[in-house]
């Protein structure tokens, strides 16, 4: 009998594990990934989803099984078994979540590092790095991702000013002011952001990046687009009545198209 229950437990945990992995790989709940940051994010998401599915389905199954198996049958009286605790079992279910949490924490640290979260701030405006005395806070991705090291050119610097209820982009190179963000494909962009009035947030779901835009405190966000197209920029911090309407677009073009856009607009505005 104990053998049978051991086999049952083992096989049901096996089914649960495989089921969790299967669900996580077959249920896709994320939008397209369009930045160098996004595949790294999706990897973390997948791992969290697998662990989450296993835990949730396992706990739900245990509760439902207990409710059915140990239900009071009609006419039954009396109490359940006198079981006040089991030290080894309790140590087991303290240790397992602790290990899982530790693993998740270390893994997400690794992801964070790969996204550039631990890099020193690399915002370089007009080559003045070093003698920049202004205090700047960086969002995740404000340091470069490994692969961009090979790319020797410095990031494209763009300034973002947020106000109720619009994002205004300023390109120091060419002195262009635009309501939409135009960026070249495959090149690192460094956004320096500051708000004129209340706190806003710059979010591009397809880039998996978000950073608050704060009045009185510049923040920066770096990213490298990897997919050409048109993606929404969403304000994600309650900023007033028209918060829901505070949206813009990021247009990721091939380098050539972007250069054309830059040239055409520079002429008009300078």
């Amino acid at each position: 009998m104990p053998k049978l229950s051991a086999i049952l437990t083992l096989s049901s945990s096996l089914i649960l594990g495989i089921g969790g992995v299967w669900i996580a790989y077959n249920v896709d709940m994320l939008p397209v990934s369009a930045s160098m940051n996004a595949p790294v994010y999706d990897e973390l998401y997948r791992v969290l989803f697998i662990i989450g599915c296993i835990l949730f389905i396992g706990m739900t199954a245990l509760v439902i099984y207990s409710l059915i198996q140990f239900r009071r049958r009609p006419g039954e009286t009396g109490d359940g078994i006198d079981l006040e605790g089991n030290i080894s079992l309790e140590i087991f279910w303290t240790a397992v979540p602790a290990i899982v949490v530790l693993f998740v924490g270390l893994y997400s640290y690794d992801i964070y590092d790969r996204m550039g979260g631990m890099q020193p701030l690399m915002h370089d405006h007009n080559g003045q790095m070093g003698n920049q005395t202004e205090r700047v806070w960086g969002g995740i991705g404000s340091g470069p991702i490994e692969t961009t090291y090979s790319n020797n050119s410095s990031p494209l610097a763009i300034e973002l000013t947020a106000m109720q209820f619009a994002f205004i982009f300023h390109y120091p190179k060419g002195d262009i002011i635009s309501g939409e963000l135009h960026v070249p494909l495959g090149k690192e962009v460094s956004l320096k952001m500051e708000s004129k009035d209340v706190i806003h947030a710059f979010w591009v779901p397809q880039f998996r990046l978000k950073q608050d835009v704060i009045p009185g405190q510049p923040t920066i966000l770096n990213f490298t687009p990897t997919k050409a197209g048109n993606f929404p920029i969403v304000c994600a911090e309650l900023c007033g009545p028209y918060h829901g309407g505070m949206r813009s677009n990021v247009i990721v073009d091939e380098q050539e198209d972007f250069d054309n856009w830059l040239r055409e607009n520079s002429k008009e505005t300078i």
Binding site: V40, Y41, L44, Y45, L48, V104, G105, S108, I111, Y112, M115, G117, G139, I140, P205, R208, L209, K210, Q211
Partner: peptide, 8 residues
């Protein structure tokens, strides 16, 4: 709780 996840 994971910073990279939360940022999205």
């Amino acid at each position: 709780a994971q910073v990279p996840f939360d940022v999205h």
